[in-house]
Amino acid sequence: MGVILTMTMVMMTALAVTRERERGTMENLLAMPVRPMEVMVGKILPYIGVGYVQVAVIVASGRWLFGVPLMGSLTLLSLALLLFIASNLTVGFTFSTMARNQLQAMQMSFFFFLPSILLSGFMFPFRGMPVWAQWIGEIFPLTHFLRVVRGILLKGNGVAESWPEMWPIIVFVAASAALAMKQYRQTLD
């Protein structure tokens, strides 16, 4: 679930502003009486719905096709998903403000996506990696999200057990959103 969301959410949003720039519609967007934060929220909100549709398909498939248990709270899972989807969307928006065209935005997405997968504990045991790789892996929201999802779905973890892995995602969202806003304002100038 986390890998699919990372791949699709970052890429879709990374193409959002660069597509506007390439098509020449960025000037229309800039002429509107909206603030940069409103533009970012407007670009991100539809993709949150898309992310939840993907999650519904993944959870249903996991439950009925593969027999994956759902031990924990779906409400807590939904909250964790909202944070994780927002983290990926803000990264994608940041990339779209930095890239000059869609190819650059796609390349930036892959440069985020590949280390995120390799260092998150998805492919290799996290504690089996070198310490420097673990430090880098702790930066990525996928690392924390995988721990949250495993805990909620397989162990029935609650808020108290999930919080130590959720607050780093919140910090990541705030940092990437701030960077996106700073970069977006620079593209306005």
Rank of each mutant, 00 (worst) to 15 (best):
P33G: 05
M11H: 13
T8W: 08
Q54C: 07
F126I: 04
L114N: 13
I117H: 06
A133P: 01
F122K: 06
R63M: 10
K155G: 07
G49Q: 05
H144V: 01
L114R: 11
W167A: 00
T94A: 10
M166S: 03
T13I: 07
A175R: 02
A105S: 09
L188Y: 02
M9D: 11
V148Y: 02
Y47M: 06
K155A: 12
I139C: 02
M123K: 08
L5K: 12
L77D: 06
V149A: 13
L77N: 04
A56Y: 02
V17L: 10
Q186M: 07
G151Q: 03
V39E: 08
T94Q: 10
R100P: 00
T75P: 09
S78W: 04
L79M: 11
Q186Y: 09
V57M: 12
M9N: 15
F112V: 08
R35Q: 13
K155E: 15
G62T: 11
I170R: 04
F140R: 11
P125A: 09
F145L: 05
L15F: 06
P36L: 09
L65M: 13
V3T: 14
L70R: 15
S96E: 00
R100K: 15
A31D: 04
L76T: 07
A99M: 00
R185N: 11
A60P: 04
M1I: 14
I169T: 01
M1W: 13
R35C: 04
L83R: 04
E27I: 14
N28Y: 08
M11S: 13
P115S: 05
F140H: 09
A180T: 02
L82E: 08
L5C: 11
Y52Q: 02
R185K: 14
T187Y: 08
A80L: 01
P168G: 03
L153Q: 15
L77Q: 10
N157K: 14
S78P: 10
M9A: 15
L81C: 09
M106Q: 15
E161A: 13
S162E: 08
V17Y: 04
K182D: 01
F122E: 11
L65F: 08
A105N: 02
R100C: 00
V41W: 08
Q134C: 01
I85R: 05
G158E: 06
A99S: 07
V10M: 10
A14R: 00
L81R: 09
R21V: 13
L142D: 11
Q134T: 03
L188M: 06
M98T: 01
L74M: 14
G158C: 06
V59E: 07
M12D: 08
A80S: 12
M123S: 15
A80N: 04
Y52G: 02
M106G: 14
L118H: 04
M71L: 05
M7S: 15
L142K: 10
A133N: 03
M26E: 10
L79Y: 13
S87T: 10
A174W: 03
T6Q: 11
S176G: 12
G62A: 09
L76A: 02
T90M: 09
I48S: 02
G92A: 07
V68W: 03
A86Q: 14
L76W: 06
M40W: 08
